[in-house]
Simulated scan of single mutants.
Amino acid sequence: MGQQFNAAYWQHRYQLNQTGWDVGEVTPPLKNYFDQLPNKDIRILVPGSGNGYEAEYLFKHGFKQVYLVDVAEAPLQSFARRVPGFPKEHLLHQDFFSLEGEYDLLVEQTFFCALDPSLRQDYARQCANLLKPGGKLMGLLFDTDFAHEGPPFSGSREEYRKYFEPYFHFLHFDTAYNSIQPRQGREVFMLLQKK
């Protein structure tokens, strides 16, 4: 990970509450997908989880094999206070790229866009490594040019396709119809299945 965007950088952002990406709840595209999942026993990982609203929603709706991973300790501590019944051993304070394990579903929500773009291919590969055969990567990617230097970093669906195509079948990869208002027309909802 680039020195500028290391664990200390993200810890500092959380401590200063400089978290403009944080909408304070699970977003509608992810919530709608979660509500359609029939099997509550699947192992789910939220990479770069931040405050983990997705994991909180899943846990409160009966999913017990939910894991969060983040390089910054502050959001994991905040999550533990907010969701006291959540298993502490499912809060993984480590680098996503060094994580091992097997999951049925990975949930992407503003982690990919926070990474230095030089890590995007590595991200796609690591997602595939962490998924069981046939496992799925779902979530949202920004399909926009930001006026400022990142994070978040700009990108396009055409660019993203080349990172994921070696490892995944594309089940859905299109503009999200139910993004929150500030992100309308600027997010791609993806549902990819490990090859």
Rank of each mutant, 00 (worst) to 15 (best):
Q15N: 15
E165K: 10
Y9I: 05
S49T: 05
F86G: 00
A72W: 01
G2N: 15
Q4L: 13
D35H: 06
L58C: 02
F59C: 03
L58H: 04
R13Q: 11
P166Y: 02
N17S: 06
K40A: 03
F97N: 08
E102C: 13
L105G: 07
T19W: 00
I180N: 08
Q36S: 09
D95H: 06
F146S: 05
L131Y: 09
K195M: 06
G135L: 02
R82I: 08
S78Q: 15
P166M: 01
E73I: 14
D70K: 01
K64H: 12
L92S: 05
V107P: 09
N51C: 12
E187Q: 07
E159S: 13
H172G: 15
A74D: 09
Q65S: 04
G2H: 15
L119Q: 04
E158T: 12
Q193I: 07
Q193P: 06
E165C: 09
H12L: 12
G20H: 08
G50N: 03
G48P: 00
Q4I: 12
G185W: 00
A55W: 10
G135A: 03
V83K: 10
D116K: 08
D145Y: 13
R81W: 12
T110Y: 07
D174E: 15
L37M: 10
Y177H: 14
V107G: 06
L58P: 00
F173G: 05
A80W: 04
R125M: 11
F97V: 00
K88P: 10
A8D: 15
D41R: 12
P166S: 02
P75Y: 11
A114S: 06
Y9H: 07
Q18S: 12
Y177T: 15
D95F: 01
R43K: 13
C127K: 04
D22C: 09
D145M: 11
F164Y: 09
K162Y: 14
T175S: 14
N17Y: 06
F63Q: 00
Y123K: 03
L30K: 04
I180G: 10
P166R: 00
T110W: 02
R183Y: 14
Q15I: 15
F97T: 05
A147M: 12
R81L: 13
V46L: 00
H61G: 13
A147D: 15
D104E: 08
L119A: 07
V26H: 12
L192S: 06
L191I: 05
